[in-house]
């Protein structure tokens, strides 16, 4: 379970997140949508402590921290509970696909080598890249790299996987294979928070869609409700624009 209470983030005088309250159940698939620059990435990054939130409380699994009192240990623990998938994959360029996935098991979780690599190979099977085990990122397609990026997040066994526009950097030909993998994860009831412009994914996979604007949660609900019966004019406006360019 994830629970955010009055989570705020300021960059200097700019208020990007303004007291977000949000609870996500274990196994829930949440898609976050909203106009550019409204703080969607910032929200995910705060949960992972890639940004230091300005104030509020976060609970992930059985770990609760007041963001202003978070010690180094709290931050590391929170990061281990929350895996991140980046828009530009961000694979370790000096490591093979297998090593990218095994890295955290070896270094952070201190698993023995053999066990870590066995687990990493299982994940490579799951993401359909067993034959790329020894390939370096530079020799893989965007789609393959992002699947390894997701594999790296899966290895963590985290409470939640945070996806920040995982398909936005991909050539269209690779989008489907990445979305397919995410659907597979969703069917296994892996808790996920996904920021995306792929409305079909939101409609087909999400349990809940959250619309964010101006640092606030404007509206949220099951996809059928948000897509067919939005209540707030800002949601209507946004959907009209995005569905025009990204038809479902």
């Amino acid at each position: 379970m994830i629970k955010l209470e009055s989570l705020s983030k300021h960059f200097g005088k700019t208020v990007v997140l303004d007291g977000i309250d949000l609870t996500i159940e274990k196994g829930e698939i949440v898609v976050i949508i909203g106009p550019s620059g409204t703080g969607k990435s910032t929200l995910l990054r705060c949960i992972n402590f890639l940004e230091q939130p300005t104030s509020g409380t976060m609970t992930v699994g059985n770990l609760t921290v007041d963001v202003n009192r978070a010690s180094r240990g709290d931050i590391l623990a929170m990061r281990r509970q929350t895996a991140f998938v980046f828009q530009n994959y961000a694979l370790f360029a000096n490591k093979t696909a297998l090593q990218n996935i095994a890295e955290r098991l070896l270094v952070v979780d201190k698993w023995p080598k053999e066990k870590a690599y066995r687990r990493a190979r299982e994940i490579l099977e799951q993401i359909g890249l067993a034959e790329k085990a020894d390939a370096y990122p530079a020799s893989m397609s965007g789609g393959q790299q992002q699947r390894v990026g997701i594999g790296r997040a899966m290895a963590a066994g985290a409470e939640v996987i945070l996806f920040d526009e995982p398909t936005s950097s991909l050539d269209p030909e690779w989008v489907e294979e990445v979305l397919g993998l995410m659907k597979q994860l969703a069917s296994e009831r892996q808790t996920m928070m996904v920021v995306t412009h792929e409305m079909s994914f939101a409609r087909d996979v999400a349990d809940r869609v959250i619309f964010i604007d101006g640092g606030h949660i404007v509206e949220q609900g099951p996809p059928s409700e948000i897509f067919h019966n939005p209540k707030d004019p800002r949601t209507k406006d946004f959907l009209k624009k995005i569905l025009a360019t990204n038809p479902v």
Binding site: F84, A90, L91, F92, A93, N94
Partner: peptide
Amino acid sequence: DRSQTEAALSIGMTNGQLMRRIVLPQATR
């Protein structure tokens, strides 16, 4: 690449681990 630094931090590496395992090997090259 700064995004690799973020990726390393996101999986819970310490600054030392990040330097030793990700940044310095690439910087060496």
